[in-house]
Amino acid sequence: MFEARLTNGVTMKQIIESIKDLVKDCNLDCSEEEISIQSMDSAHVSLVAVRLGAGAFDHYRCDRPNALGINTANMSKIFKMLNNDDTVTFKAEDEGDALTLLFEGQKNDTIADFELKLMDIDYEQLGIPDTPYKCSIKMPSREFERIVRDLQVLGDTCTISCGKEGVRFSVTGNIGTGNILTRANASAEKEKDQVIIDMEEPVELNFALRYLNFFTKATSLSDHVMISMSPEVPVVIEYPIQDYGYVKYYLAPKIEEE
């Protein structure tokens, strides 16, 4: 038996929105401590990892680990019906083939329940090494979203270089080139405007903007985004969900051919 009640139901809606363009089908892996999702996109270029700890829920019970296979598009359709202040309750039997979702309005005047059929999804979990990164950047998520959106008009590959003075996002395309430099400003008044760069050595990597754009769908989950890079390994773009969890995207850097 799995049962979980999330007062802030819109968080789940935002999580689904943040992965549905990237991932078609995935498992909601429920364990005693957390709900997690790990999936690659269909081209196997990027990987998304979601964690929502039991602490995020005001009631959480999971008797035994359970993988709930869902179609993200269908899940998203159901969550479209959720009001922003609704509470969501998830229920699933251990051997069941459906996930029950209960949406309750704040004033307890409406209750909607949905039953979503589950799928058997074969997915091999990838092991993500827990290594320290040479650069990590914390910046406002809206800012990152804007940069990615703006640079897309110029080309499809973005070079992210992190140096002492700041992070530079550069694109070279058929019509020309563009550079956006974001300077570190750890002393900004409001915390959400801060840009903090923690750097051991400069790193420069190339990425497909198409994917970066997919990742910015998680912007509404968090005020800031953490970008971590090391040479020749996938970048991690993390949107923390308060203290309870995160949506993390991993993207393989483009490499020079031959």
Binding site: Q125, T157, K254
Partner: peptide, 22 residues
Amino acid sequence: LNDKKQPSIKNFFGAKTTKVVK
């Protein structure tokens, strides 16, 4: 301009099969 190759994320992260719950 685009002579860069996009490798798969699998080139970086190995598979682990233990987490298959069912």
